[in-house]
Amino acid sequence: MRQSGPSGFRIGIDLGGTKTEAVALSPSGDVVAQERVPTIKGDYAATIATISGLVTRTENQIGQTCTVGIGMPGAASRETGLVKNANSTWLIGKPLQKDLEEALKRPIRLQNDANCFAVSEAIDGAGKDTEIVFGVILGTGVGAGIAIRGECLEGRNAIAGEWGHNPLPAPMDDERRGPLCYCGRHGCIETFLSGPAFERQYAEACGTEIGAHEIETLAASGDSRADAVMRRYEERLARALASVINILDPDVIVLGGGLSNIRRLYDTVPTLWEPHVFSDSVKTRLSPPMHGDSSGVRGAAWLWPPSL
């Protein structure tokens, strides 16, 4: 039987472009339940139903009523409460927090997914015991979050860390104007560094559509065309992250999302960003996530302190 009332157990939901994940944390922060389901794209009602179903099944599994924190692409507007800036475009203009609170019959906490990721890695992950963590999501889109002393920095307009919708720094001639982004502008960092962009670059160079993992495997096996695509990607990532270091000067940059699994990035990118950083030395670390692709969902659960 499920116990009612606050229990100290927290559920986090990560609403991603390809998967929606739930995790339940005990008061001590241990994972006690976890489930992933495919994200139903383009259907807002199905999004509400998916999240509600995950919460219900998780609470039935652990026998506790929990607080619920949700990480989502984009942000809720401070003016209207409606979703803005989401690459899951079916969420844009919707009262997601209101509708979820009605469906779940309780208050929830809603936060940008990259902010959740940054907080998770700052609290007990790759950025533990550091002051400033910049958490990057390299996945279906490109987002980022900022954690200062373990707490999320949202900013005046709830867009702190929206790195992916700045122009790619120091564009080369063949990068100018750049691809069209869903936001309506050309040449956003997201259009060069997202997973789909990386795969598109390989297809344009090699005439074959394959996934990011396959590109990495080919490059590691000595395929010169795959390696050239990898090197171009790394150089662009280095330029883009150097601009962040120049502004924020973080202790650590943690990569998340599907492309964070490309191991060579952690060796090559820091050597490539140095000429673009306005300093005689660069102490910022580039790290993989300690909690893998479940870091964001853990950060969503952390939106509620254990005592509530």
Rank of each mutant, 00 (worst) to 15 (best):
H186Q: 14
Y233Q: 00
A118N: 00
A122C: 02
L104P: 00
R263D: 14
E151I: 03
I148M: 12
E190M: 06
A33I: 04
I40Y: 01
S194F: 07
T140A: 06
L303N: 03
H165Q: 10
C152Q: 09
L82D: 08
S243D: 11
R236S: 05
E131I: 09
A220T: 09
N261F: 14
E199V: 06
E234R: 13
I245R: 09
P167R: 15
V55G: 05
Y233F: 15
V83C: 06
G257L: 03
R231N: 12
A49S: 15
I11C: 15
G29P: 13
G143S: 03
T140V: 11
R156Q: 14
T65E: 13
A86S: 14
Y233R: 01
L286Q: 02
T18C: 07
I137D: 06
R177V: 14
C152P: 03
G5L: 03
T271K: 15
D113Y: 06
L15Y: 15
R239G: 03
L168T: 05
R225A: 08
A76Y: 01
K98C: 01
T89F: 10
S221V: 01
M290W: 12
C66W: 02
I108T: 13
L286E: 02
G5Q: 01
E151R: 13
P6K: 14
A170E: 13
K128D: 12
P38N: 12
L82P: 05
V229G: 03
I40T: 15
A301M: 15
L54D: 03
E121T: 00
G139T: 06
L54K: 09
S77D: 08
T18S: 14
P95K: 07
A86G: 13
V37Q: 10
F134T: 07
R10A: 11
M172R: 15
T56L: 12
D14R: 05
D14P: 07
G93S: 00
P169I: 06
Q64R: 06
